[in-house]
Structure formats: C-alpha cells, structure tokens
Design a protein around this nucleic acid. Structure first.
Lengths: 138, 138
DNA sequence: TTTATACATTTGTACCAACAATAATTGTAC
DNA sequence: GTACAATTATTGTTGGTACAAATGTATAAA
C-alpha cells in the first residue's frame, strides 16, 4: 500500500475507533453521539434557547439532519421545540431539566474516555497531532 | 473547551473532511466509499473470487451491511454473486470486467486526492501523525 | 402592492452503520 | 445417525448522513 493511502486509512480507522469508544460510553445514557452534541450545545447556552441554525453551525452534519436528531431528543423528553415569536421562520430549542441532568452524566463519561486516550500522548505529540490534522484539512 | 476534547474533535473533523473529499472524487464514478472498498478488495484477488467473510475482514463495516453493499454493486453490474460449491453456506463474489474498469478509474481519482493532502505534510510530520494516531487507538 | 428573492426549516429519497434475530449449512459428540 | 453447536450469510429495525426539493416566512424591488 502506498504511503498516502496508509496515512489516510490511519486517520479513518482512528476516528472510527474513537467514535466507537465514545458511543459505548454514551450507551448507558441511551443517546447517540449527534444527540449528545446537540445537548452539549444547548447546555452551553446557559438557559437561553438556540435556533436550529445556531446548533447546525456547531455540528458536522447538515441542517436537514439536525431537525430529525432533535425529533428524537423531543421523543425522549430531553429538549423542547417552540416557534420563535420574533421571527416565525426560526425555531427555538430548549433543553429540559431532564436533558441537563443527562448531558451532565454523559459528559463525565465521555471526558473520562477522552482523557484516557489523550494521556497516551505527550503534550508535544498532542501539539504535533493537532498541527498535522489541521494542515491536512487546509 | 478542554485539551482532550479539542484533539478528539480535531480527529473527527479531519476524518470527516477527508471522507467528503474522497466521496466527491468518487462521484463521477457513481459509487460510494464502501462500494469502492469492496471493488478494490476484489480487484486485489487477481481473478479469484472472495467470500463475504474475506471481504468483511478487510472492511470496517459489519457482515450484515456487506451483504447489502454488494447488492448495490450487483445492481450496477460491477460484481457477480455465486454459491460456493465446496461450502454452500459461503458465497463467492466475482468482480466483472466493468467493475475492474471502474475501480481503476476510481483508484486514480482517489489517489490524486490523497496525494494532494499528504503533500501538505513533511515526511517527519507524516511519521509523527501515524505514530500519534496509532498510540491513540492502542 | 405585487413580485421576487433570501432565509429557516422540513420532508423525501437513497445509502451506510450497529444490533438482534433468523435461516441454511456444516461440523462434532454421542 | 441424530442432536447440538458453530459457521456463513441474510433480513429487520433503528438511527445517521448527503442531497434535492418543498414549505412557510421575511425582506427588498418594481
């Protein structure tokens, strides 16, 4: 296999591996990674609601999917959706108290997994990794 | 945001970005990345067929999904499926001449994208990246 | 004011992935 | 040789993602 292919596969494989570990950590909370991300963004709003637009900007996925991810969070009672009174095109998403409780629990579990992985690298290696990844995308 | 979270997101974001670039390169060939991977494995068999098992081992996806990915390649006339005469539980997958032609074309396009990205890094950076990624998974 | 354009979100379609359950075949123990 | 387990592949279900088209609302232009 050629050098460039090997490195690309390494990035894929690692990302996939990390995703699996985080998904496993979220399993007791019964939420997916995208659902966790939405909850985390909403919690960061500190009580204020967020439009779909705002949520979308901070997620990797496309807008059209954000609607459906939120549908599932509503089914679970973790968020609430209301039409924005100032601009009725917009929709405001609120996190519920159940949602806050769950995202706190989930964050602890995810942070533990992340730390365990990152601790395998020196701080120099972490810097190098971040620099290389950013260059790859540029 | 904490350091470990930032690095994990960087890996995700980069992997996603690379996937998008490769998927775009495959668009003219009208195949997805998993479909391309199956074709590449079959071409590597150099004329011999491969069981689902064998294909599965070299892919990230689960067995159950490999069946359906191959269904789509059959629809496009790129591969053929036959029951293995020695062990009728097994299924042999053959690549067609149309499949070989397409995978050659696709490989060229993908390799170009990969090279363009990797060329942004020095060979030292590539080594460091590979080492760091492998450590992350270990 | 009517028309056009842009914005914010939703819906439809096709594909991929994880997981569980099932079917068919083969291997093994007795 | 029959009962049971293991292997190989398929199917069903749920959730995620990309892309295109559609809906409803707001704003600007004629």
């Amino acid at each position: 296999m050629q050098d460039h292919t090997r490195t690309v596969i390494n990035v894929f494989y690692t990302a996939h591996n990390i995703e699996n570990k985080i998904a496993d950590a979220l399993k007791p909370c019964d939420i997916s990674i995208p659902q966790f991300n939405v909850l985390r963004i909403l919690k960061g709003q500190k009580g204020h609601p967020a439009n779909l637009c705002t949520i979308q900007e901070r997620m990797i996925a496309k807008m059209s999917n954000t609607t459906r991810i939120i549908d599932r969070l509503i089914d679970k009672g973790l968020v609430r959706r209301e039409q924005c009174p100032q601009n009725r095109r917009k929709v405001e998403i609120f996190i519920t108290s159940e949602g806050v409780e769950l995202v706190d629990q989930a964050s602890t579990a995810v942070a533990a997994v992340e730390k365990e992985m990152i601790n395998k690298l020196t701080s120099g290696e972490i810097d190098g990794l971040n620099t290389a990844l950013t260059k790859l995308r540029s």
